Amino acid sequence: MNIVRNISLVVLLALSGCAMRSDLETVQRDNEELKTRIFRLEKDLGGVRTETRAGIETTLQDFEKERAGARKGLADLQASMDAMKVDLQVMAGKVDDLSLAAKKPTEEVNLLKEDLERRLSSLEERLGAVQKKVTDMETAQAKPPEPATPEALYQKGLDAYRSGNFAAARESFARFLEQHPKHELAVNAHYWSGEAYYGEKKYEQAILEFQEVIKNFPGKEKVPAAMLKQAGAFNEIGDVKSARYVLRKLIDEHPSTEEARRAKERLKALK
């Protein structure tokens, strides 16, 4: 009985050993298979990582390129805006220059007119003082008998001028104007008095006499001639600006006269 039990125990142990070996082999096979699967997964994962890294690097490179392009576009746009600002500033400067250039002729004319008026005023004061002295001297001297008519007194002055006796001519014209200031020949008397001063090279006095014609006898035929001679007197004393001003005024106000034609020629010569 004991023998049978022992034999049964041995058989059981043998069978148990066989079962354990079979399970162990199964476990080993499963383990190898698991390792193989893990290896494949790691390999696949490595490929995915490589592809992902390459894709990321490519994406980053593309992004960097796009960002560089955007930066360049922004820089070009900024440069264009800066250039436009400079152009606008230049245009604004040119507009200001044009505006100043447009104002300048008017301002120059106004300044020249004011300067001319001051000069004429000063000359009038000086001529008044001179005339007063002459009047006082004439009063102190015995006066010769006067011609019978205003026309005769005027003609006497004109004859003296034509003979070259400018002082006697001025004296006769001065008496004529003193006695007959409203006479129709008064404008001529002033004009020929200016011519007499001009002939004596007393250009400042001549300017004032011609100014009497221009200012007090508008519309008279002697006005253009007086303006032309006045411009010549200004030129003789070196006041070229005033000469130009008077010549331009003559051309503007009396364009169809012979004096205006001569004024244009003189303007060309003064430039």
Rank of each mutant, 00 (worst) to 15 (best):
H183G: 03
G199V: 04
A148H: 04
A263S: 08
L88V: 12
E258D: 12
T58K: 14
P150S: 04
I251H: 02
E108S: 09
E108D: 15
H180G: 01
P145D: 14
L177H: 00
E209I: 04
I7R: 07
L120N: 04
S8N: 09
L15S: 11
M20Q: 07
K249L: 12
I251L: 05
G17H: 03
A260W: 04
A263D: 04
S16N: 07
V134C: 00
V11S: 04
E146L: 15
T26E: 13
N165L: 03
A79C: 01
T106A: 15
V86W: 05
L88W: 04
A169N: 03
P144Q: 15
L60A: 06
L267C: 11
T135I: 05
R162A: 13
M20Y: 08
A233W: 00
R29M: 12
G164E: 01
S172A: 15
E259H: 04
L120E: 05
K241R: 15
M137H: 06
V246W: 01
V4S: 14
D76N: 03
L45A: 14
R40H: 11
K220T: 09
K43I: 05
L228R: 01
V10G: 09
V11M: 11
R5W: 06
V240W: 09
R21F: 14
E42M: 10
F217H: 11
I7L: 14
A14S: 15
G55F: 08
V187H: 04
E32V: 12
G128D: 13
K104V: 09
K103P: 00
V11P: 00
Q61M: 07
A148R: 13
S256E: 13
A152D: 10
T59G: 13
Q141A: 14
E66Q: 14
G69H: 07
R262A: 11
N31K: 07
A142V: 13
A231V: 09
N6G: 06
A142N: 07
T59F: 07
D76V: 08
V134E: 04
A243R: 02
T26Q: 11
P145Y: 05
A70N: 06
R53W: 05
Y154E: 01
I38N: 12
V187C: 06
R266C: 00
L15C: 09
A269C: 03
L153R: 01
A14P: 03
A168G: 05
M91S: 09
A206V: 02
E107K: 12
Y198E: 04
P150F: 06
K202L: 07
A102E: 11
L24R: 06
G219L: 08
V86E: 14
A189D: 01
L41V: 09
I56T: 06
V27E: 08
E32D: 14
L127G: 00
H180S: 02
R40E: 12
R261E: 08
L250P: 01
M137R: 11
Y191N: 03
A70M: 08
D87G: 04
M1T: 08
A243K: 00
K72Q: 13
L250S: 02
L9Y: 06
D44W: 11
L267A: 12
A148Y: 05
E66D: 10
R248A: 08
V109A: 15
L267I: 10
E146Q: 11
E253Q: 15
A206G: 02
R170D: 03
P150R: 05
A168N: 07
E42C: 05
P147K: 05
N31I: 10
T52L: 13
